[in-house]
């Protein structure tokens, strides 16, 4: 029963190119963010990440008002914010506080700019919650390429970033280029988060870089293993989420997040026993 069900499901899936695309893009983006997310979770940067997503919303508002493509503008907004936050950190403002301020400032700006445009609030919900089924061919290609860059980068530098988290001074001493590596990491993270807004939107996107990574670290115990577990976790969630939403006719993004959240807490409680 289960096997024939799965097979029918697969056949169903490959009839529709938009579904195929959603699955492939979802898995690439999810994988890249899950790996980048391990460092986010270890460095306690969850708020920083979701801050970047919300800051991108200001860029989206601006682009919609000007009638240009929103995502490139959002990428620029978030990358600038990431750099600016890095600078503020050296200025004795706590990172937490500066993110909190930029977060609401940029959201407010975004809403005002959107309301000024001709279309009113336009696709406000798709920016807030994402829509993986609406991703176009060109966008899909960009997302897959950037995800691959992110994964290769993490393959090369995951040790450096883990060491840097554990002992910043020591790592800088042993590897003078560490500051640059970390800078590249922040930019890749910012770009990936903005691209993933297509899938989960400003409000839900943090699920992609927090939940799988947290699950990986809890189950894996040791950080190398955490990467593989996070990858398995996110790919199963995304695939199952898309299927679930297709067959139950519910929104895709929330379906993925609910599966991830459910999976995370199941793991947490099973592990406790």
């Amino acid at each position: 029963m289960l096997i024939t069900g799965t097979v029918t499901l697969m056949l169903e899936l490959f009839k529709y190119s938009f579904l195929q695309r959603a699955v492939v893009v979802g898995m690439f983006t999810g994988s890249a963010l899950a790996i980048l997310g391990i460092v986010v979770v270890m460095r306690r940067m969850a708020f920083f990440g979701s801050g970047l997503a919300h800051i991108a919303f200001g860029g989206i508002g601006l682009a919609v008002l000007l009638g240009i493509s929103p995502f490139p503008v959002a990428v620029i907004f978030s990358v600038c914010a990431a750099v600016f936050l890095g600078y503020l950190r050296t200025q004795n403002v706590s990172e937490d506080t500066s993110i909190g301020i930029l977060f609401s400032l940029s959201m407010a700006l975004g809403v005002i700019l959107l309301s000024l445009g001709k279309k009113g609030y336009g696709d406000l919900t798709s920016y807030l919650f994402g829509d993986i089924l609406a991703i176009g061919k060109y966008e899909a290609r960009v997302m897959i390429i950037v995800s691959m860059i992110g994964m290769v980068f993490m393959y090369l530098f995951h040790d450096h970033l883990a060491y840097f988290t554990m002992d910043e001074d020591y790592t800088k001493l042993m590897y003078p280029r560490m500051k640059f590596v970390y800078f590249v990491y922040l930019i890749l993270l910012a770009v990936m988060i903005v691209l993933a807004l297509k899938i989960l939107g400003v409000i839900l996107v943090s699920a992609l870089f927090i939940i799988p990574a947290a699950a990986g670290l809890i189950v894996g115990g040791e950080y190398h293993r955490a990467f593989w577990i996070a990858l398995a976790f996110v790919n199963v969630s995304i695939f199952a989420g898309i299927m679930l939403s297709y067959f139950l006719d519910i929104p895709t993004g929330p379906a993925i997040v609910v599966l991830e959240g459910g999976g995370f807490f199941s793991i947490l409680f099973l592990k406790k026993k």
């Binding site: 040790d159 554990m166 020591y170």
Partner: peptide, 24 residues
């Protein structure tokens, strides 16, 4: 380093990985 200057507990590193930091 002086002990309290590191964030050791944040990263689940194995002992061997910690020593390897010295050979980055």
């Amino acid at each position: 380093p002086q002990t309290h200057s590191t964030n050791i507990s944040r990263v689940p590193l194995k002992v061997i990985d910690v020593v390897l930091m010295g050979c980055m």
